[in-house]
Design a protein around this nucleic acid. Structure first.
Lengths: 104, 104
DNA sequence: AAAATATATGAACAGATATTCATATATTAC
DNA sequence: GTAATATATGAATATCTGTTCATATATTTT
């Protein structure tokens, strides 16, 4: 099989791309707030929309994005869908990020 | 003084905005690679440009952005400018990010 | 002094992306 | 069955952002 394309700094292109995509996903104010809401406790879409002050449609779009990046997970209950964190990497990332912005 | 505007999830708007801005800064493939290069060892602009395969101008723009977010720091030596990490939050963020993308 | 080199910067353009709106799907209530 | 509710989705649009190009600044060399 072909060698992965390597940049001179030791990060292959695929990894750099994946990594940046992950951070880009968290790099949106609405999604940060959606994640913070979901982080506090399992939430259904409507409640998230109200909490972050976005339309349900916009939130739904964001949630799909977050799902695709495996940051949140959906649990269907009747006609409602409850979202929770998929793992706790996000919590750790938030903590580090906060350390930096609150004067790092 | 006025209370900071709070979202229902406990993140005030300013914090959510700052946090997302930080992640957005790392959420670009070129900047990820620039950071990786600088992370390995202090680099001057030209070398970074070559390492990541971007123009020096583009890299310079990115470096300004990274400087403004206090992610990298510049040291001037003659007509060259050497960049290094400003602190090690980025290293920790990269580690966590990699854990997530390499099967989260 | 001028020429050459390294980096920075502003403006402009191209491509990406968040939000809105209209509509679709799924589930429950009647 | 139909009506109502919750969420999802596609397309369109408006905004944001990365890169390029031209040019500016700073430093060294001759």
């Amino acid at each position: 099989m072909p060698k992965p394309a390597r940049t001179a700094d030791g990060l292959d292109e695929r990894t750099a791309s994946d990594l940046s995509e992950l951070f880009r996903t968290i790099g949106d104010t609405s999604r940060v707030r959606i994640l913070a809401a979901v982080m506090a406790h399992e939430c259904k879409v409507g409640d998230i929309a109200e909490a972050v002050g976005n339309s349900e449609s916009a939130v739904s779009h964001h949630l799909r994005h977050l799902r695709q990046m495996r940051l949140v997970r959906a649990r269907k209950a009747g006609r409602e869908v409850f979202y929770s964190l998929d793992d706790d990497h996000v919590v750790a990332l938030f903590k580090l990020g906060l350390e930096h912005v609150r004067h790092g």
